[in-house]
């Protein structure tokens, strides 16, 4: 009789599956990179994934939950439940270092929690200015580079 895998193994497996789920609006990063997967809790033979919304009204929230559900089901993890947690509130500090690098490569300036101007994701210049406090999604603002003239999205510090 095969022994049950340990909870650490199950937790890692769940994280591995979710790390393959792209954010629906910024497909270059996964929901794990963005810090939307808050954690996995295992209680006896029941595992639960905690997801957190980025913005209260982010229209991607439902799509993310659905995508996570489908990915878990496909990986044979149908019994894993998904719940939404609001506290502690999501912040851009929860975006991983890897996630920030992926954003930059995708053409989105990652958030700089210490403040200051955004770094142009194309030419690296810090001579940039904000064009609009709101961009194409709730989490981004619109900036432009004064050096190479390119407009770009910046992830808002939140």
């Amino acid at each position: 009789m095969a022994s049950q895998p340990s909870s650490d193994v199950i937790e890692q497996r769940i994280f591995d599956v979710l790390a393959q789920v792209p954010d629906p609006e910024i497909p270059a990063v996964s929901i794990v990179d963005l810090g939307i997967v808050r954690g996995v809790s295992i209680d006896g033979d029941q595992a639960a994934v905690a997801l957190t919304p980025t913005y209260s009204g982010c229209p991607a929230t439902h799509a993310i939950e659905l995508a996570a559900r489908l990915a878990l089901d496909e990986a044979g993890l149908e019994a894993v439940t998904i719940r939404t947690v609001l506290s502690p509130a999501w912040s851009t500090e929860m975006i991983s270092a890897e996630g920030r690098e992926k954003l930059r490569r995708y053409g989105i300036a990652p958030p700089v929690e210490s403040g200051g101007p955004a770094e142009c994701p194309r030419c690296g210049s810090r001579d940039t200015h904000e064009v609009s406090r709101f961009g194409s999604t709730p989490c981004k603002a619109l900036w432009r580079c004064n050096s190479c003239s390119e407009p770009f999205d910046r992830f808002k510090c939140h």
């Binding site: 913005y55 009204g57 982010c58 609009s132 619109l142």
Partner: peptide, 20 residues
Amino acid sequence: IEVDLSLSNLALDLIGQATM
């Protein structure tokens, strides 16, 4: 267009808060 995007994003936040 920037203001258009801004006002819609403000609305989105508010409707998200209202839902909760």
